[in-house]
Amino acid sequence: MAPESIYAHVNLRRNYRRRKILNTVMLSLTGVTVALAVLPLVWITVYVLLKGGRYLNLALFIHLPAPMGTPGGGVLHAIEGSLVMVLLASLLAIPVALLAAFYLLARPNTAVAQAVRFSTDMLAGIPSIVVGLFGYAVIVVTQKHYSAFAGGVVLAIIMLPVVLRSAEEMLKLVPPEMREGALALGAPEWRAALRVVLPAAMEGIVTGVMLGIARAVGETAPLLFTALGNDHYEIGQIVRQGLHYHQSMGQILGQIFGQPADALPLTLWKYAQQPYQERVQLAWAVAFVLMLFALGLNIAARAWLAYRRRKLYG
């Protein structure tokens, strides 16, 4: 006799109903969690835009701060300071990070590679204020003054692990045949890396660099010990003055990097806690500018990547 079918004990109809209900519940749950995840972002953005947008004006971008207690003035010093320090940080961190990433790719299992990986992971985990303290001890104390240079260096240290690890991951995703294909044509290793592997990983690397820059732009704590802050930091003025006194290019650059400087988040932090309403309003405006900066950076990167992808994949 044939064994009894298992379906004698199964209520397919009921199973189907149960599955339907469970599916609906779970799907709704995921929807709710997504909403919860997005809510803070939307909230913050809208809040800052509304609050800061009110105080937005042209003066913000072209004037230095007005003396305390007087209305008007801008945050040009912070915008320029941020640009200078982030630029310096990028120049220091990105090439180092990329070259190190290539090393990790080429020699993934050597002791040096292990050490690099371990230390970048550690570095990424160190609180940024500690990095700032390090900058203070090593640069500020030795030079006996705060400077944009010191700020740039600590921002570079903060950027480095972000860019390095993301670049490594992205380079690893490039099929090994790409590199081998170039080498099989008789290309030297550096050329295969620069002309073939790097472009192939470009999308991911750019994303990583964006993350790194965003991180550097937003840092406040390490700059407290290094760049300090400087309400009168204005590159245009430094250059004009330098030209007036017939200073050399090096001297002018020395001025730009040698002075204490300000940065957007630093200004935000300082102004927000001052008892003058104008300053608090300015702080909101700075928050707005910071968000605008992050948004602009993101949009620019995405637009460039989209353009590139269209060119590459038709």
Binding site: M178, A184, G186, P199
Partner: peptide, 20 residues
């Protein structure tokens, strides 16, 4: 080695056009 690889070329399993 470079000269050997020029004389003995190679085509791979996965098509690997360079990103250009």
């Amino acid at each position: 080695v470079v000269d050997i690889r020029r004389r003995v070329g190679m085509v791979f399993q996965r098509p690997n056009p360079f990103p250009m």
